[in-house]
Design a protein around this nucleic acid. Sequence first.
DNA 1: CATGAATGAGGGTTCATTCAT
DNA 2: GATGAATGAACCCTCATTCAT
Lengths: 215, 215, 215, 215
Amino acid sequence: MELGQIHRAAVACFARQGYAATGIRELGAAVGLNSATLYHYVGGKQELLLGVISGCLTAMLAGAREAQTPADPAQRLAALVGFHVGFTASNPQTARVAEYEMRSLSPEHRQSMQGLRDEYERLFAAVLHDGERAGAFHTPDLSLARLAIMEMGTGVAHWYRPSGRLELAQVQQEFIAMALRILGAAPPTATTLPLPVRLASEPDSEPGSIPQGAA
Amino acid sequence: MELGQIHRAAVACFARQGYAATGIRELGAAVGLNSATLYHYVGGKQELLLGVISGCLTAMLAGAREAQTPADPAQRLAALVGFHVGFTASNPQTARVAEYEMRSLSPEHRQSMQGLRDEYERLFAAVLHDGERAGAFHTPDLSLARLAIMEMGTGVAHWYRPSGRLELAQVQQEFIAMALRILGAAPPTATTLPLPVRLASEPDSEPGSIPQGAA
Amino acid sequence: MELGQIHRAAVACFARQGYAATGIRELGAAVGLNSATLYHYVGGKQELLLGVISGCLTAMLAGAREAQTPADPAQRLAALVGFHVGFTASNPQTARVAEYEMRSLSPEHRQSMQGLRDEYERLFAAVLHDGERAGAFHTPDLSLARLAIMEMGTGVAHWYRPSGRLELAQVQQEFIAMALRILGAAPPTATTLPLPVRLASEPDSEPGSIPQGAA
Amino acid sequence: MELGQIHRAAVACFARQGYAATGIRELGAAVGLNSATLYHYVGGKQELLLGVISGCLTAMLAGAREAQTPADPAQRLAALVGFHVGFTASNPQTARVAEYEMRSLSPEHRQSMQGLRDEYERLFAAVLHDGERAGAFHTPDLSLARLAIMEMGTGVAHWYRPSGRLELAQVQQEFIAMALRILGAAPPTATTLPLPVRLASEPDSEPGSIPQGAA
DNA sequence: CATGAATGAGGGTTCATTCAT
DNA sequence: GATGAATGAACCCTCATTCAT
């Protein structure tokens, strides 16, 4: 039994029902383990959640940092948005758990994880700031634009399905284009998208969910 | 004791901790009632949640329908986005509960509520469709644009605070502008924004939350 | 349902099996209550134990203080020993729980209770000290004598049975005489023994126990 | 790994927290063994406790029998009390476990061990009986005196510390003197005290305990 | 209108023990 | 000789809910 399996089962349950509504016995059953045996691999429910969220945010931060190689602001933004959308679409359930269940962490853990999340968001803020100073972006309110761009990317987790109508690369390109339009910037030059990374904690699919129309 | 008080307390708790993590005694204590007395006003925990979500989605649907008075697609879209942002910002906690806790409803109730939500989204889809046919919007993928626009509006609930830097009207105007830019449409003509409606279920504020910088 | 009944059941179980070996369901069953109902009356297992021990030590301290009315050291000692033996024999199980299960208290509670116990013991030490200064007691080591006298009194809880061979008053008189002999003091003058007090936490009897021969 | 080490760790834990509150993993950790490995040395928790208590009571019985070499009753009593105090002071934790945790034994084991304990007590009863018949002891109630003398000796385990104010021999002599005073007998003639025996199950010391003033 | 009492079910967690390796 | 993995049972406690008062 490997830890990844347990994390996947946990993410699947947490994404579907929420952390509080998921029982430890249920988690055990999902990986074919007695509830007591789970405690050989995981310190407890909290540790399990922390492990998932920590793994997600750490990967996001590392990936985003790597994505924005030195380039002009528009290209860096494109890379960030591309990564953000790609990561979210490749790990929709993990990303959703990391977003929704932050509140279920103990205060200390939550503070620690919120720090990672803040740092991630600062990457976007910095690029926007640079772009505006360089005259590449034109928007009345930079903060508002950043929030809009990030939220619309995060929202991908709510509807994207690998089996959907669009290829992941298309979605990424489209979101990059929308972000640049929001910022009143020139259309994107051809960017090389970072390869989407699938976390060990991301379950195979979302069986019980109904694909919501679009993609 | 009025039902509104109870709904407000419930929304405050559900938004902060989630439905599953909120106890019926906790809710009672929040309005100074014995847990047993609560059952005189609300039939149970599920009914309470259903009442909140139902009230929210019904109001959203009615408000959105009212907002998009006959006009050209761009103006109708502006009205819809303005309403969406205005409603979300005026009822951030209720909106969040209606979004997050849909999963906590029983299957029958969930299906019913999801129907309202789908209808709401169809209003946006219809406007986009009309606008594209009329040549007002130019975007490679209409569905993607709709999802992006709605998600970025919904996201307002995550960060908007009435005491923040920006007036609500400014935020609305700005989001309308961003939506139109996403759609490659002309900047908005001066639109009359619908008056923001505050639901009876929306608590006064969000004491424990940290205003996240922007607005 | 009164608290006294619950305390009695708890003391009976704790005295027989120990605190750690007694389950909360077992306690509930002993008073005909569901385990959950027990929590309406008692905050938890720890609070229950604390209530018992606190009640016992408080009564011991108050009783001992009241017993040693101003008199010469020998009479005061007689009163203290009489009370100690009387209390222990009247509340053997409660006294045993208060002695044995001090270790089962949380550190803070234990410290607090140990303070009461220390104060109780100081009453004996003070009398011995006064008696020696007054020339009433002659013993090579006062501390040793105090420990011996107290332990032999406490031990009454291990074997005394109300239905036994000896009346309580006889046992008290005999222990007073032995204590004075240990101290090399004159035989006791006729002392009025304090009326034995039965705590609310003392169960009716000790059904499962085997009367150990003597009294 | 020798059995003595395991017994010592067990006695230390049992004396501090009680049998029921001590986990098998905790015991293993105390001797640097995996909990499963412990089962190679001791058959289980019960067997471990039985081994400790059995070893203690067997040694007590043998020591007491050996101590009371043919002599007059007063000297035999002195020898018994000297041994009892010496043994208890030399093995305070083991003695305490043997006393307190008899109840944690299974019924069959408890009966067997109680038999040893009863036999031990009969040694004291016999000496007192002989002494009274020979006119050496004068006390109104022989049983009461026996219980008092034994309890006060057993109580030594509660407070004696090797590093304390008094030498063990002094304590023994003093207790012998007190016992004889209780019995109205002549002061002790110079008796040779049996050498104190330290059981293999007795841990080195009692680190967490606070020496209570006296000895 | 309001509540204290009561309960079955289930929460997360730890238990002593076994066994294949 | 030693251990990690595994488990059923039990741990203390909290849950949503009902009902007589």
